[in-house]
Design a protein around this nucleic acid. Structure first.
Length: 567
RNA sequence: GCGCUCGUAGCUCAGCUGGAUAGAGCGAACCCCUCCUAAGGGUUAGGCCGCAGGUUCGACUCCUGCCGGGCGCACCA
């Protein structure tokens, strides 16, 4: 419907250029919006106000000219000039109802597009250190990152979801020592216990399994516990494998899948870190000072230069990061999205600076970042404090077990990434209308329920017949639903472009509200029920609500939330 | 102190990359089940969009400066 109008407007603009009302070389960005207020029609354009200046005419007069140049179309019922110069379009009913047909035709693909033209994009998210279970912050990253992947896939991108394991740094040494200490039956109260060791209970489990010579059996790794408390390398190897498996299981329970797992250690093994460093040196962006090797990140907008190689010979964390992103680029990912916690935002400048300093024509804004803010967990009005060192924190697994996967995913993805998020466990668990997840899912189930009811009445759902009688759907509640559904494809497109899954969550809440309102009409006036004595009308209505059901299904799928048939 | 980010109804949040009188939900006050799930619907109340300037036909949206919250400012990750 919107596309139709855009095409018509384009013709009108071309005509105005031909008539020399506006300069022929003027590039015009056509804008058509869905109106908030139905008295303003269905769609509106601000084109006249945009063209007022180049045309040298008052906006309302330009509007008159645009309308005059508009080709005849059966899709448009009425056109009005309003306010400062808006052109309001009242669309014909059959132009509105065509969306119902589209949904039936395209089904699960409705809302999808080929905007990405099958180009490769890599999305890196979660990327937690394998030093402990995933917590709610990782959960937010997982929910957002995975939804971004789904959005990009839906819009025609060739997506690779990747998890980067920092399995080579100091944190891993701390992990190994922590496990070793537990193997030796040390506790955090002992004098030998160092303060940067991990105190969590799970470390004891790792130590016990290692000593019991258990085997870690996962997709890409098979590691046996050696049972030797003196072999730190073996402990490290086992502990990392153990925790990676735990994290994988958590993610699986969260319905988050990765196409690739990338190990930081492999960058060292393959000499990629050395290679990167040498290239940076060769390009003249480094210097030695105080026994350390520095990168001139200030040449690329950083506050100060950064140490690459410490005086003890070790690399700082961002060096393998640069090597890793070079690797991404060389793997052919011209577009990369990194979803991570905003507490890591200082890496952005460094990684980008490092990539620029390689002189390989990697674009300046590479890679893209989506940063999410912290999550505060509330239980019964009390904040649940998260402290990793002390081992007392809300794990993702706990949340999934207590709250459920769907609600957890929805709540973590329903807010803009940049805003802080308060996760209310009681609210997420509640199965009432307070809870948007159930509200939306119920709308889906409600349609399913109506179709079941039809069967109980020994009547059939006749889709073809219904689609032939969509013109009978003229109630405001019905056209509102059509209008809302017709917005879905553009919404998905923009959500994917902006990497903003939360808009899908909000949209679904609104669509569900319209559906519930439509249902409720039948309480007051039986003739407004979905199932009536008039079969043609009934079938048309069933087509409409089936379409809504499909759109809710498609939208929830983008968030990784299920759409139950029954609740 | 510097950088990033946020500041919209009592609370939790939207506001489509500048558009028409700022929207939802919860909470508050009422109202609606002989009816396809009341896991629902309706009505009312509630706002100097943090503050002050600027940009223009037009600003919650863009720019600048303050104020306030979060995060980050290591030869840590």
């Amino acid at each position: 419907m919107k596309e139709t109008l855009l095409a018509l407007l384009q013709q009108a603009v071309d005509q105005l250029k031909a008539d020399a009302v506006i300069p022929s070389d003027l590039s015009v960005r056509l804008q058509v919006t869905h109106t908030k207020d139905k008295s303003h029609g269905d769609l509106a354009s601000n084109i006249a106000m945009m063209l007022a200046k180049p045309a040298g005419l008052p906006p309302r007069e330009v509007a008159q000219r645009v309308i005059g140049a508009l080709p005849e179309s059966s899709a448009i019922n009425k056109v009005e000039i309003a306010g400062p110069g808006f052109i309001n379009f009242f669309m014909a009913q059959d132009a509105q109802s065509e969306v119902v047909r589209s949904v039936h035709d395209q089904a699960a693909a409705f809302g999808h597009s080929n905007a990405g033209q099958n180009k490769p994009v890599q999305v890196e998210f979660v990327s937690a250190n394998p030093t402990g279970p995933l917590h709610i912050g990782h959960g937010r990253g997982a929910a957002i990152g995975d939804s971004i992947c789904r959005l990009l896939r839906a819009t025609g991108w060739d997506v690779t979801a990747e998890f980067y394991y920092n399995d080579a740094g100091q944190q891993i040494n701390n992990l190994a020592h922590s496990v070793q200490a537990r193997c030796l039956n040390l506790t955090p109260d002992d004098e030998q216990w160092q303060k940067d060791w991990y105190q969590g209970e799970y470390i004891i489990d790792v130590a016990n399994d290692y000593m019991a010579k258990k085997t870690i059996d996962a997709e890409d790794q098979h590691v046996e516990g050696k049972g030797d408390s003196q072999d730190l390398d073996a402990i490290r190897h086992f502990a990392v494998a153990y925790l990676r498996r735990e994290q994988d299981l958590d993610l699986k329970a969260f319905a988050v899948d990765f196409d690739n797992y990338f190990l930081e250690s492999s960058l060292y093994q393959d000499g990629k870190v050395e290679e990167t460093v040498e290239r940076l040196i060769a390009n003249g962006y480094t210097y030695e000072d105080g026994g350390a090797l520095w990168l001139k990140t200030t040449a690329f907008g950083d506050d100060k230069d950064r140490v690459m190689r410490k005086s003890d010979g070790g690399y700082t964390y961002f060096v393998p990061d640069v090597a890793y992103h070079l690797n991404k680029y060389q793997r052919g990912f011209k577009r990369v999205v990194n979803e991570q916690g905003s507490d890591h935002h200082s890496t952005i400048t460094r990684v980008r600076a490092g990539l620029q300093a390689l002189n390989l024509d990697i674009p300046q804004g590479y890679p893209e970042y989506v940063l999410h803010q912290m999550v505060t967990v509330m239980r019964g009005g009390e904040e649940v404090k998260i402290s990793k060192r002390a081992g007392s924190y809300v794990t993702l697994r706990d949340l999934i077990d207590e709250v459920g996967r769907d609600a957890t995913r929805y709540f973590l993805a329903a807010r803009r990434a940049e805003s802080q998020l308060t996760f209310d466990i009681e609210l997420a668990k509640s199965q009432t209308n307070d809870n948007p997840v159930y509200y939306i899912q119920y709308a889906h189930a409600r349609v399913c329920s109506a179709l079941r009811k039809l069967n109980e009445l020994n009547r059939d759902y006749e889709e073809t017949l219904g689609l032939q009688h969509l013109d009978k759907l003229t109630l405001p509640a019905e056209t509102d639903l059509m209008d809302k559904m017709s917005q879905f494809p553009e919404l998905v497109k923009s959500a994917a472009e902006q990497c903003e899954p939360h808009v899908i969550a909000h949209y679904l809440r609104e669509l569900a509200a319209l559906l519930h309102g439509y249902y409720q009409l039948g309480s007051d006036q039986p003739e407004l029920r979905w199932i009536t004595d008039n079969n043609e009308l009934t079938q048309a209505r069933l087509c409409l609500i089936s379409a809504v059901k499909q759109v809710i299904h498609n939208g929830l799928a983008l968030l990784g939330v299920t759409a139950p048939e029954k609740m």
